[in-house]
Write a protein that binds this DNA or RNA. Structure first.
Length: 546
RNA sequence: GCGCCUGUAGCUUAACUGGAUAGAGCAUCUGACUUCGGAUCAGAGGGUUGGGGGUUCGAAUCCCUCCAGGCGUGCCA
């Protein structure tokens, strides 16, 4: 489809250019029921002196295309196009080859970002889901993608934990994750309330930064213990990463980086903190007044690290929108400091709130661990169907946790709603799984995989379903271009819905006319393949039973 | 104070970035040969797109203003 859309755009753009119309063709979904796609550019050129000639050129070009069976110019000059489904079916099966990019790009996706010592909590869900989806979509079209989890494994929080352990004489050798998880909130609380504790923690933070052996070995134990748990949870949730780099990995680059910046006169001291000399408001603080590092210090070093070790064309940061100022400063500073590669995008998403729109907190005051949400959803599904394999229930659980999350535009504020995540009727992960299970079963029973062909006579619901199937590329393109998986998520519902209607319309296996039956099975097959590709792009695994 | 963002049906939301009659799901009500798997399908009601003004062929979308809310803002990440 992308090849088709791109082809169409290219040809029509040439015609536009011939008549000095300086804009590119915009293709969108048709709002007229009898048509599939529409082009709106011409509407504003109604009074163009050569409008008739432009129309003729366009019409001639569109008539030539084997992928459209009819073309219509409305009064207002909307151009409506109807698919030639037979010809499309001959050439398109919605597999990777139909969407492969001409030039592969090297992309880094920075998402997840768990902190050592803390369990994954519901606030990590969006970053993980969106990140994985962007990863898979780009993989699907052939880009070279690498994911980096970007661990929060350095700095003050870790120093606080070590301080707490030392102060209370805890045995670090026998430290368990559960201990760590209870220490974390206690230590940060003491840091805020106890001046002595604070001083000690700062001292330890300094020891970390100067590679003090004893402190480093403590840090290692904490990191190892915590990482085992994080990896276990992530794998349960169906996430994997190419790189597990953290803030600690870039720490050693910072002194040189700062030295260079000072030498190049890009930064200056202000109240003994390093501040960028870039002329923007607010000023960008690069280090604290005691010389220790900030969020942006490590993030800048991370860019340097990645340029060295993971060459990239672009980095995506999939992080909460509240941090947009940080990323604006980061990107702008990287440019001002003349780092080489300057292609960055902050893929932000709404703030995590509870059902009432207040900042999310559990009764105990913390955030809900992600794995708790997983097991609650698991139990809920198990109750409905106890005959399913454990593997299937887990797949369904992850489908629910992924699909309901991706369905909403990432920019809107994020209401964490348990009902929404466990809901199994309507536009949900359960619904889309059910549709493809039905299709799969149909095939098993039909037991006829060969010689399937689309018949010349296509009924209404069949052509509606086919049109939708051939629009996959359109939604894929949109989702990738805007880093917004919700277009594909919604498309998957529409696709599944049309399939269910098609399925209920007539019992396919009872059809006596082999030609028609095969044609319907052909459509089913096309649906199934498309559906699975969309699911891959969203990070959802199709189940085999329900 | 300054900056950024949001406001669409009772609820959750979509709208191809300025295009045709604002489209869905939930909830509510009504209905479907007891099935190639009913976790489905068909139908109904529900909208002054927060209010007001402007820009133009055309506005949920752009501009102004007011209202309501959220977030961020030099030593957390």
């Amino acid at each position: 489809m992308n090849t088709i859309l791109n082809n169409l755009r290219e040809k029509l753009n040439n015609i536009f250019a011939k008549f000095d119309i300086d804009e590119s063709v915009q293709i969108s979904i048709s709002k007229i029921t009898d048509f599939d796609i529409q082009i709106n550019n011409l509407v504003k050129y109604k009074n163009h002196k050569s409008i008739e000639e432009i129309k003729n050129h366009l019409l001639k070009e569109l008539d030539k295309s084997e992928y459209f069976s009819s073309v219509e110019f409305s009064d207002k000059l909307f151009i409506n196009l109807k698919f030639n489904l037979i010809n499309l079916a001959k050439n398109i099966d919605n597999s990777k080859k139909d969407f492969a990019v001409n030039k592969r790009e090297k992309l880094i996706l920075d998402y997840g970002g768990p902190n050592i010592g803390k369990p994954l909590h519901v606030g990590h869900l969006r970053s993980l889901n969106i990140g994985r989806s962007l990863y898979n979509m780009n993989k699907f079209i052939g880009n070279e993608v690498k994911s980096d989890i970007h661990l929060g494994d350095w700095g003050m929080p870790i120093a606080q934990i070590i301080t707490y352990i030392e102060k209370n004489n805890l045995d670090i050798q026998t430290l368990k994750v559960s201990d760590l998880e209870s220490i974390y909130p206690l230590s940060s609380k003491e840091y805020l309330n106890d001046e002595k504790f604070q001083e000690k923690a700062k001292e330890i933070n300094k020891k970390l930064n100067t590679d003090d052996d004893e402190t480093i070995s403590k840090w290692k134990i904490i990191k190892d213990v915590s990482l085992v748990e994080i990896k276990k949870n992530l794998s349960e949730l169906g996430h994997s990463f190419d790189y597990w780099f953290g803030e600690s990995d870039v720490n050693s680059l910072i002194p040189d980086m700062l030295e260079n910046l000072i030498e190049e006169d890009k930064v200056e001291y202000d109240e003994s903190a390093l501040v960028s000399k870039e002329n923007i408001e607010p000023k960008v603080l690069i280090t604290k007044s005691d010389g220790s590092y900030l969020y942006i210090t490590t993030d800048l070093a991370t860019i340097i690290y990645r340029e060295k070790h993971i060459p990239f064309d672009k980095i995506f940061y999939i992080v909460d929108s509240r941090q947009s100022l940080h990323f604006r400063q980061l990107f702008s500073s990287a440019k001002y400091f003349e780092f080489n590669n300057l292609n960055f995008e902050h893929v932000g998403f709404g703030t995590l709130n509870d059902e009432n729109g207040n900042p999310f907190k559990t009764r105990e005051g913390g955030t809900k661990p992600l794995i708790e949400l997983f097991s609650e959803t698991y139990k809920y599904i198990y109750k409905i169907n106890q005959n399913l394999e454990d593997k299937t229930i887990k797949q369904l659980t992850n489908t629910v946790l992924t699909y309901s999350d991706l369905l909403t535009n990432r920019k809107t504020n994020y209401k964490f709603d348990l009902k929404k995540f466990t809901n199994i009727s309507g536009k949900t992960g359960i619904y889309i799984q059910y549709a493809q299970v039905r299709a799969k079963n149909l095939f098993q029973i039909a037991n006829n995989n060969n010689s399937l062909e689309l018949s010349d006579e296509i009924g209404n619901i069949e052509s509606e379903l086919l049109s939708k199937i051939f629009l996959f590329g359109y939604y894929l393109e949109r989702s990738i271009e805007m880093s917004e998986p919700h277009h594909l998520a919604d498309y998957l519902y529409e696709l599944s819905n049309l399939f269910n209607i098609f399925y209920e319309d007539e019992k396919i296996l009872n059809i006596e006319d082999e030609k028609i039956k095969n044609s319907k099975l052909y459509i089913t097959k096309l649906f199934l393949e498309t559906c699975h590709n969309v699911m891959f792009c969203l990070g959802v695994e199709p189940v085999n039973e329900m």
